[in-house]
Write a protein that binds this DNA or RNA. Structure first.
Lengths: 170, 170
DNA sequence: GGCAATATGTTACCGCATAACGCCAGCGTC
DNA sequence: GACGCTGGCGTTATGCGGTAACATATTGCC
């Protein structure tokens, strides 16, 4: 799974990575932001800003207005440590937050049945082919983030009916 | 451009295509549905359900509740004559509505500056490669609809600043 | 300390989307 | 014709996603 709940150790490592990323970009990682990121890291998968606010409250016994959540998420997205899934309006911590190296294009496989997301990096060749195609059609892609919808193996093998909480596919 | 306003003749041909599509699937193309589809065909590009309701009123001097608009759009999407852009919450008539042949995968190039959308069909090879990749990652894609965001040539060549009504990418 | 810049809180609002319920038209059956 | 069924449509209310505008607090810097 992708959005797997992270262990304490992983959370710590990820926070350090986020700190690095923020520092190199002149962004402050305040205590609140750190707490929010922790809640996001602990989430089992991509969640909405509103849900994240609820988690924050549950995790830290403190109210955090959605407005603020959105603002913080924007900061993290700019810093490259959080992704937003546009097709489902959900946010998730970047799989590479704990790594040092940056990663460029990102593709997401989204299960419309159980909601889990797999973050993967296709070969550059594929991406540049996409770009090429787009260019020849008069477009300049500036965001190679692909969100591919489907069903994961688990759900595909017959258990679909048991997970009614699938995330909308509009 | 993709969502180009259609001429009277094109609208008529498209409606006939839609009628065929609905008939073969046992769906009724009522007068109201036909009028809604006409309004959608006449739109300059992908529009929201709420905007479509406004257009309907302007076009036919009759109120149409959004609820109904959504229901009708669902019917059309099932029939394959209307697409929903998940990333922008907008709907557009399928470019192939007037054709006889069905078309499988669809990709959309979306300009985040001016909002125009280009509907294109990538080579099957590309799509099957995507599918392959997904399969090897434990996913079954059931919807190859790709929504690629970028900037169109026109907007890219310096006129971006003049179109503040870009559609959200957010 | 004083100032500027940034971070966070508050309020109010808009847009997208759907649940739940009810009404009515059309159609087949007896 | 009465009955019941089905599907199309209307009405109401509501939830969720997202942000503008403005106020206040905190931080960093001189």
């Amino acid at each position: 799974m992708s959005g797997l709940k992270r262990s304490g150790k992983m959370v710590r490592q990820s926070l350090e990575g986020a700190e690095r990323a923020c520092r190199t970009q002149g962004l402050r990682l305040t205590d609140k932001r750190k707490r929010l990121l922790t809640s996001l890291l602990k989430a089992a998968g991509p969640i909405s800003a509103y849900d994240l606010a609820h988690h924050y409250r549950a995790d830290h016994g403190e109210e955090l207005p959605v407005m603020t959540v959105y603002r913080m998420l924007d900061v993290f997205i700019d810093a490259g440590v959080v992704h937003k899934l546009r097709s489902t309006n959900r946010f998730m911590a970047c799989r590479h937050m704990a790594c040092d190296h940056p990663h460029a294009a990102t593709q997401f496989l989204i299960c419309d049945s159980c909601g889990i997301v797999r973050e993967m990096d296709f070969a550059d060749a594929e991406i540049s082919k996409l770009n090429q195609k787009a260019r020849s059609s008069g477009f300049h892609l500036y965001q190679e983030q692909l969100e591919l919808h489907g069903v994961c193996d688990r759900c595909h093998s017959g258990i679909e009916e048991k997970t009614p909480d699938a995330r909308a596919h509009g």
